[in-house]
């Protein structure tokens, strides 16, 4: 019950705070990842529907691809991922197709499109680049984010933290959470799908006994770091980014095993048009250079084999995310109903 998988997986926790910033962000991609140098040039017209990304970093990637491929005429329509997914479905129903590609920041939006059988099948040599468990025939994850338990290193010992997310409902640890936050609600949705509605409602009630509410998940991590609570629920990057700016912060990451507590969610891309061009464009996003860029600059988790995760995270194969079809996380309404019934929203 109390076995731990946390930063010691890499021995990174101990050295994380003491390493200079530049070296903490330097990564050596393992052999096997495809370099952009080996990819075919992109020639022709492409329309990409782009869900809002990480503060302009996706834009930097697109600009770099465009610059490298001057004969590519890339048109971009930007918007919220869910809104764009609905647009694609509505356009298809009207017999119109404007987008060749759809890059969404969440898998729920991908599911809205794939459920309508609008995504084109992808070649196995492309999906085969992805890590095991992230290979899908009709879409490909680009980068991931993992749910974590940030904990205060002064207030709690790692071995006092359960590695079973459900056990936290019975613990006496002071917990920080942000129930109104979208990522938290996706996590509860995963729990509902894995454990059922009743168990999820009981878990929410149990945690609520010792919980302090925050507006967002950075607030949770900051609350943990200040010692207002022992641990919290948050995506991994808040802690990593906080520690990059404040290396001596009193916070580290713990992980649960095989449950919603270590859910890995992803951004994803799918092709809506046949032909090589959309697929080859996707190859650029899965290239070693782009995956490394998003890992170092955005702290996102590369999901292509052979590219290392952002420092401070264990290697993906030491994590044990639950087996769940990420597209089902779009089913949010029952989750919100339970959270309201229990009184945490």
């Amino acid at each position: 019950m109390h076995r731990r998988t946390f930063l010691q997986g890499l021995g990174a926790a101990a050295v994380f705070g003491s390493m200079p910033f530049a070296s903490r962000l330097s990564w050596a991609a393992s052999p096997g990842a495809v370099s952009v140098d080996s990819l075919p040039p992109l020639v022709g017209d492409l329309t990409l529907y782009l869900g809002r990304g990480e503060g302009g970093l996706y834009e930097n990637v697109l600009e770099a691809i465009q610059k490298r491929n001057p004969k590519l005429n890339l048109r971009i329509r930007r918007g919220g991922s869910a809104a764009l997914a609905n647009t694609i479905v509505a356009e298809a129903k009207a017999g119109v197709k404007r987008a060749d590609l759809f890059w969404a920041v969440d898998t729920g939006s991908v599911g809205l499109v794939t459920d309508q059988q609008l995504a084109k099948p992808l070649p196995s040599d492309l999906t085969g680049q992805l890590k095991s468990g992230f290979q899908y025939p009709g879409w490909t994850p680009v980068t991931g984010r993992v749910r974590t338990l940030p904990y205060n290193t002064e207030r709690v010992q790692p071995d006092a933290i359960p590695d079973d997310i459900m056990a936290l409902a019975d613990s006496d640890l002071a917990i920080g959470w942000a129930p109104a936050y979208a990522s938290f609600q996706s996590f509860v949705t995963a729990m509902r799908l894995l454990e059922g509605n009743k168990a999820t409602a009981n878990w929410l009630r149990g945690v609520n006994r010792n919980a302090k509410k925050y507006a967002g998940e950075l607030g949770v991590v900051m609350g943990v770091e200040r010692g207002e609570v022992d641990l919290g629920f948050a995506n991994h990057y808040y802690t990593l980014r906080l520690k990059s700016g404040k290396p001596d912060a009193n916070v580290d990451l713990a992980f649960t095993k095989n449950d919603a507590g270590c859910l890995v969610n992803a951004s994803g891309i799918l092709a809506l048009s046949d032909g090589d061009l959309p697929v080859n464009f996707m190859r650029y996003l899965l290239s070693r250079e782009v995956q490394s860029y998003l890992a170092t600059e955005a702290y996102e988790i590369p999901l292509v084999e052979g590219v290392a995760p952002p420092q401070g995270l264990p290697a993906m194969d030491t994590l044990s995310p639950p087996d769940i079809d990420l597209r089902k996380l779009a089913d949010l309404r029952p989750t919100l109903n339970i959270m309201r019934d229990v009184g945490v929203l």
Partner: peptide, 18 residues
């Protein structure tokens, strides 16, 4: 969309704005 990059430079500012 911007808070991630901002956290590295001024986490208190981000928390304040949140």
């Amino acid at each position: 969309g911007i808070e991630g990059a901002l956290i590295e430079h001024d986490a208190e500012l981000v928390e304040d704005l949140e």
